[in-house]
Measured scan of single mutants.
Amino acid sequence: RHRTTFSPVQLEQLESAFGRNQYPDIWARESLARDTGLSEARIQVWFQNRRAKQRK
Rank of each mutant, 00 (worst) to 15 (best):
R1W: 03
H2S: 08
R3K: 14
R3S: 15
T5H: 12
T5I: 11
F6S: 04
F6G: 04
S7Y: 15
S7V: 03
S7A: 06
S7G: 04
P8A: 14
P8Y: 07
V9D: 06
Q10K: 03
E12N: 04
E12D: 11
Q13F: 07
Q13E: 10
L14N: 00
E15I: 03
E15F: 00
S16V: 09
S16E: 13
F18L: 01
F18P: 01
G19D: 06
R20H: 06
R20G: 06
N21K: 02
N21F: 04
N21T: 11
Q22W: 06
Y23T: 10
P24I: 06
P24W: 10
P24H: 03
D25V: 03
D25K: 02
D25I: 00
D25G: 06
D25S: 11
I26N: 06
I26W: 15
W27H: 15
W27T: 15
W27D: 15
A28G: 07
A28T: 13
R29T: 13
E30L: 13
E30V: 12
E30K: 14
S31Y: 08
S31I: 10
L32V: 03
R34N: 09
D35S: 13
D35G: 13
D35F: 08
D35L: 14
T36F: 09
G37D: 05
G37Y: 02
G37W: 01
G37H: 05
G37E: 08
L38K: 02
L38F: 02
S39H: 09
E40Y: 05
E40R: 06
A41P: 15
R42E: 15
R42A: 15
I43S: 01
I43T: 02
I43M: 01
I43C: 01
I43D: 01
I43N: 02
Q44L: 14
Q44G: 12
V45C: 11
V45G: 12
V45H: 09
F47V: 02
F47R: 01
F47M: 05
N49K: 14
R50P: 00
R50Y: 00
R51N: 03
R51F: 07
R51H: 04
A52L: 13
A52F: 04
K53N: 05
K53A: 12
K53M: 08
K53F: 10
K53T: 12
R55E: 05
